[in-house]
Amino acid sequence: MVYDGIVIGLIIGLLRAGWHPGLVALSQIRIRGGWIFPALLAVQLLIFSIQDRVSFIGQYSGWMFMAVYIVGLYVLWLNRAEKGIWIIFIGVAMNFLVMLVNGGRMPVSLEAASAVLDPVYTQMLKDGVGAAKHYALDDSTRLSFLGDIIPIAPPYPRTQVISIGDVVMNIGIFLYLQSVMLKNKTRASFVESKSHKS
């Protein structure tokens, strides 16, 4: 779901700013502590790949993902002055919160999942296999309204079950990309109008 906000934000940003200025603006993005994001991704992939082999890591993978979240939140906090980042922070924090109170895993609503997803996936959820980050939501789940309970289905091009935190985060990403990509455009048009006058 993280990608949807990025893709939509990029497409609309390019449409609004124009191909060239949009790309130029993107190339000028500066994020404080930006190097941490790829590092986090690498850590996640690492955990993902070895959790089946190393039992210790498999047991605590949920908590390790939590640590990844905390570092991610910290980077977002550093950049909170940028437009939209603050909203991403809130979205991520909502996801983080619900995972925190549910043992480091994201609860997924079976009703919602069975409504839109492949039954294979639903079955996997029920059996509790495969997905280290997700588990089936039940009565004992705390703050279930923050879990993956929103079914996304056609006419939206992807089928998914997402959480409200995902939605908020994507809105933030979208707004951030818009503000970044349109920065140059407003400046350009300002210069233009000035040169007209003189």
Binding site: S109, G147, P151, I164, V167
Partner: peptide
Amino acid sequence: SFSNDQWVLLYAMVA
């Protein structure tokens, strides 16, 4: 005491 379904609906309306 909302059910998940009601929460989803509430999210949509608030949005």
